[in-house]
Amino acid sequence: MIDAEGAEDATLRARLVQGVPVPAIRAFLDGTQRSQVIGWVGAFPLVYGTSAAVVRSRTERRLSTWDAPLVQHRVYVPLAYVLAHVARGDLERALGAMLEDTTRPALDGSIPAPHPTLLLERATLAVSRDRERLELALAERWCASRGEPIMIDGGIGASEAVAQSSCAVGVVKSHRTLYAEGDALAIVLALKKGERSSVIRVAPRGRSEVLSWYLRLRDAEGRDALWGLVRVEMCVRSRESISERADELSRWLLAESMPLAAPDPRWDRMAYGIRSAEEFLRATTN
């Protein structure tokens, strides 16, 4: 296992989620980001990035926007290299608070190399960090003020406060990092609809520790092994209550398999409420 250890069972196994699906999630949180090159100074890119996050809360089966969505527009500039061509004052006057430096020195004082592609990647990464920040800011606000179950698209470990809140349920749809290998991975990939893996404890670098498990939302018969598979995250809690709570949250998520989030291509894993949040941001951030 990678950065993970069993929290429920000594060795990972498949568990049938007990009980019937019940909808209990009160809100859905997601963020979006978009970036585009708006110009070059010499060989160096200026990137315009928009990041946004929203909570769609559910009342009587209808979704509506909670509080104010967060939207941020920035211009990402490799300042260290650009200043050779443009006066800092001019840049600051033109961009004001939108100016964001992508060449701030790391702890060891190093700055990224003057490679246009690399700098472009840095900018995209910066936009995505900003998006995550907005998401977490909203999530913290919800957990502090409402405290009701909220589904968050992605992990919850990036914020200490959210990672420790019992109302936050993180749902990870992409499996670039698999928290199982060998026999354990085989068990995860063989999960049937309504089954989950044992709960494990995960603590990736730079993130807070959370509890996590895999859950199969839909029948993957005849599909690829990741079809309908999500990884769930919740806050750390005492060992005795883990199984029951993991089943409870799994029931909530299984209840969200209707309506379909189609035509989003990830509809096998994506909750309709999350799609609604994305659609909202797509429609409102332009």
Partner: peptide, 28 residues
């Protein structure tokens, strides 16, 4: 609604119209 094709609704309900009562969210 935001449905692109009626087929998605059929799939979403596992072909059973009675299932719609269980959907926790109404489509936009």
């Amino acid at each position: 609604t935001d449905l692109a094709s009626p087929l998605f609704d059929v799939l979403g309900h596992d072909g059973d119209p009675g299932q719609s009562a269980f959907a926790p969210t109404e489509r936009a």
